[in-house]
Amino acid sequence: MKNNISKHKLADLFVLACLFLLVCWYAYDAYSASSHISNLILIVPVTVIVLVLCIIEFIRMFAIDEVTEQDPVTTVLPVILLFIGYVLTLKWLGFDVGTFLFIALFLWLHGERRKIWVIGYSLAFATLISLFFSGMLPYPMPMLVLSTAY
């Protein structure tokens, strides 16, 4: 049993190291392209957050020696398919409606059955994130509902 845990931790460490290195490379590449603040205003905070989370997870992996139960494929596969559908339909649904539907269906798949909570949370999150990205990005976001409001 101990051998399986070691292989599992090794695989997790590999993924964590890849994520850490890819984020560092992306931040360096973005800085190399343009060190202007308008180019880095979103990249630097997200980079710092991801790197801190990677370090926390690295420490947690060695501080806590527990066997966690893996999610079966039957619970992960619907979420993967939902995300693929989300990405493929953004062009037609727009970022605002697509995000709303993705969050609502994700919550429903994970067992949330209070319709007011699912609709309210999805609507609030989709609206805030859509307005944030449309204000921050230098190019127009495809929107279905908020394009006329913003």
Rank of each mutant, 00 (worst) to 15 (best):
M1V: 07
M1L: 11
K2M: 09
K2C: 09
K2N: 12
I5P: 08
I5C: 06
I5R: 10
I5G: 08
S6V: 14
K7D: 10
K9R: 07
A11E: 11
A11N: 11
D12A: 14
D12M: 13
F14T: 14
F14P: 12
V15T: 08
L16M: 12
A17S: 10
L22I: 08
L22K: 01
V23W: 02
C24I: 08
C24K: 04
Y26R: 12
A27K: 01
Y28V: 13
D29R: 09
Y31A: 07
S32R: 12
S32M: 10
A33R: 06
A33K: 05
A33H: 05
S35G: 15
H36D: 13
I37W: 08
N39L: 03
N39A: 12
I41W: 09
L42D: 02
L42V: 01
I43R: 02
V44L: 15
P45E: 04
T47I: 00
T47G: 04
I49E: 11
I49T: 11
V52D: 09
C54I: 01
C54S: 07
C54H: 03
I55Y: 06
I55G: 08
I56W: 09
F58A: 04
F58I: 04
M61H: 00
F62E: 02
F62N: 02
I64Y: 10
I64Q: 06
V67S: 14
T68V: 14
E69L: 14
Q70R: 07
D71R: 14
V73A: 11
T74N: 12
T74I: 10
L77N: 02
L77I: 08
P78E: 05
L82A: 08
L82W: 01
F83N: 03
G85K: 02
V87C: 12
V87G: 10
L88Q: 05
L90S: 08
L90H: 09
K91N: 06
L93S: 04
D96L: 05
D96Y: 05
V97N: 10
G98R: 00
G98W: 00
G98L: 00
L101W: 05
I103F: 03
I103T: 02
F106Q: 11
L107M: 07
L107G: 00
L107Q: 01
L107R: 01
W108S: 15
L109W: 04
H110G: 07
E112A: 15
K115D: 15
K115S: 15
I116P: 07
W117H: 05
V118N: 04
I119M: 06
I119H: 12
Y121Q: 02
Y121A: 04
S122G: 12
S122A: 13
F125E: 00
L128C: 06
L131D: 10
F132C: 03
G135R: 01
G135Y: 01
L137A: 09
Y139T: 13
P140W: 11
P140C: 13
M141H: 00
P142N: 12
V145R: 09
L146G: 00
L146K: 05
L146Y: 06
T148P: 13
A149R: 13
A149G: 13
A149C: 13
